[in-house]
């Protein structure tokens, strides 16, 4: 009975996702304003990033506030390969993903022994170490960062002067990919293991579940996708420096949409990003120029209110009646 419901829900999710993606793909036909397009790109990017973060932190329950490390590694690998060796960003993107996934697994060995706040602080600290090292690494531009030379519109080099459409479709693809990976993992062996790990790590271990390897898998997938996001961001902004791709704020911006939308859920990150990112942009447009911190007050208050009022995230507004219905 449960399995049938589950399978039906998964089918429904997939159909909804396809419809939403199709609608999203058509929006540029109606939305010509580059500012709105810019907001849409950032929203899709953060939805994808948060979805990726959600794999490790939501599904697997390992709260990371250091994913900026992978974001930055993706950005730096791509741009160092491009500016120093002329490697096209498409390859750099893959290379960045692989580097990040390997580092995530390397870090996993010692990190996954840690629990709770010890783990969270370890992730913050490792990202800070990365930030400081890049800040002092002369060859990688140190504080000066890397300016990506723009020579005109080129799909090969993935750079475009004024049009935002290629960036938009890439961000959409990234978001869809991260969603689909999550959707697929939910029903995989790993997915079941992660739910077990999250619910009760000790019991899962005693049941013979390979807790450790499943965590490593989550870390690698999550880091890979986030790094791809980082390299996209570097191409999109066409300038990177340590602070602007590896700063703590990115770790937060990956976590916040999932938390606000509904952590450990398939739709939480997308919903969270769809509300949070336009909101931050609009509050900055509206109040940012005042110099009085009003945007911070509005933004912070909303985070507090949503966290308090909807501990399961905004998604619980939609799913609660259905859930109780299913239980009956």
């Amino acid at each position: 009975m449960m399995d049938k419901d589950f399978a039906a829900r998964r089918r429904r999710d997939l159909i909804i996702a396809a419809v939403l993606a199709a609608i999203a793909a058509l929006t540029p036909l109606f939305v010509k304003d580059v500012v709105v397009q810019n907001i849409l790109i950032l929203t899709l990017m953060y939805a994808g990033l948060s979805q990726s973060w959600n794999i490790l932190s939501g599904y697997c329950g390992q709260i990371s506030l250091g994913h900026a490390l992978y974001f930055g590694l993706g950005a730096y690998t791509t741009e160092l390969l491009f500016t120093k060796f002329g490697v096209l960003p498409w390859f750099g993107m893959l290379a960045g993903g692989v580097v990040s996934a390997l580092i995530a697994m390397g870090l996993g060995y010692p990190f996954f022994r840690l629990r709770g706040h010890y783990f969270v602080i370890a992730t913050i600290v490792i990202a800070e170490i990365g930030l400081l090292l890049f800040h002092n690494w002369e060859w990688a531009g140190a504080a000066m960062g890397i300016t990506i030379p723009i020579r005109g519109d080129s799909w090969l080099k993935f750079q475009f002067l004024r049009t935002k459409l290629p960036y938009f479709y890439f961000a959409l693809a990234l978001c869809c990919l991260a969603w689909f990976v999550t959707w697929w993992l939910e029903n995989s062996k790993w997915g079941f293991w992660w739910r077990a790990v999250k619910d009760n790590p000790d019991a899962a271990e005693s049941l013979g579940v390979d807790v450790f390897n499943s965590k490593m898998g989550a870390a690698a997938v999550s880091a890979f996708l986030v790094a791809v996001g980082g390299s996209f961001y570097a191409q999109f902004v066409s300038y990177i420096d340590p602070e602007s791709v590896m700063g703590f704020q990115f770790s937060l911006l990956m976590a916040l949409p999932a938390v606000l939308g509904g952590i450990g859920t398939l739709w939480g990150p997308v919903l969270g990003a769809a509300i949070l990112i336009p909101l931050t942009e609009l509050t900055r447009f509206k109040f940012g120029g005042s110099g009085r911190g009003v945007d911070l007050i509005v933004y912070g208050t909303l985070i507090v209110l949503i966290s308090l009022a909807l501990p399961r995230g905004l998604l619980s507004l939609f799913s609660r009646p259905k859930k109780t219905g299913a239980a009956r």
Binding site: I63, V120, L252, L256, V259, L260, G291, R292, G293, V294, D295, L296, I297, V298, Y299, G300, T301, L302, I303, V304, S307, L308
Partner: peptide, 17 residues
């Protein structure tokens, strides 16, 4: 985490205000 974090942002904004 996020309640106290949101609070931190509000406090900074209020201090600036």
């Amino acid at each position: 985490i996020f309640t106290t974090f949101g609070l931190a942002i509000v406090m900074r904004g209020l201090a600036q205000f």
